[in-house]
């Protein structure tokens, strides 16, 4: 079933892709091929491959339980928040929080997780910023 849905989604992507390609405004200065041909070709093969996947599905993959799925979603949310807050609060704080969360969810006891999070954040900061001189996001406190 998964593959049938996957194929249908793929076909949809191919159609949207082809439609979006047709929306490209051509410049008056164009080469013999133009900017549309190649993406259209991609859309066609993408569509054909999707149809083939939908018609001949492989055996069902093992999807995680709902709880595990929520776990992954939560991690994605944390990472998105991390990306958004990185420039605001600075590298050290944001990374300490994100690492603490991730290691906690991978079964580290809470207190230990805070410790690991802080150490990881500090460690990366020392190695990359102080030793290697990479520019990391600096928040209001300068770190």
């Amino acid at each position: 079933m998964s593959d049938r849905i996957f194929g249908a989604v793929g076909l949809l992507i191919a159609i949207v892709y082809a439609w979006a390609t047709l929306q490209i405004e051509e410049s008056f200065l164009s080469d013999a091929v133009g900017p549309k041909t190649f993406p259209l070709g991609i859309a066609v093969i993408l569509g054909l491959a999707s149809i083939a996947i939908a018609l001949k599905p492989d055996s069902e993959p093992e999807w995680p339980s709902l709880g595990r799925l929520a776990e992954i979603l939560a991690a994605v949310v944390v990472m998105v928040l991390y990306a958004e807050f990185l420039p605001v609060v600075g590298f050290l704080i944001a990374t300490a929080f994100a690492t603490t969360y991730l290691t906690w969810r991978l079964d580290t006891p809470p207190l230990q997780a805070v410790l690991i999070g802080t150490l990881t954040s500090g460690g990366i900061y020392v190695v990359f910023k102080l030793i290697l001189g990479l520019s990391l996001a600096s928040g209001p406190f300068g770190f």
Binding site: A83, T99, L102, T108, I116, T120, L134
Partner: peptide, 22 residues
């Protein structure tokens, strides 16, 4: 459980280092 968060964070550091954009 210790390694994987480090991998994630180093990935973020690398990509942020290139462009500096969220």
């Amino acid at each position: 459980r210790i390694l994987m968060p480090i991998v994630a964070m180093v990935s973020f550091v690398g990509i942020y280092g290139i462009s500096g954009s969220s």
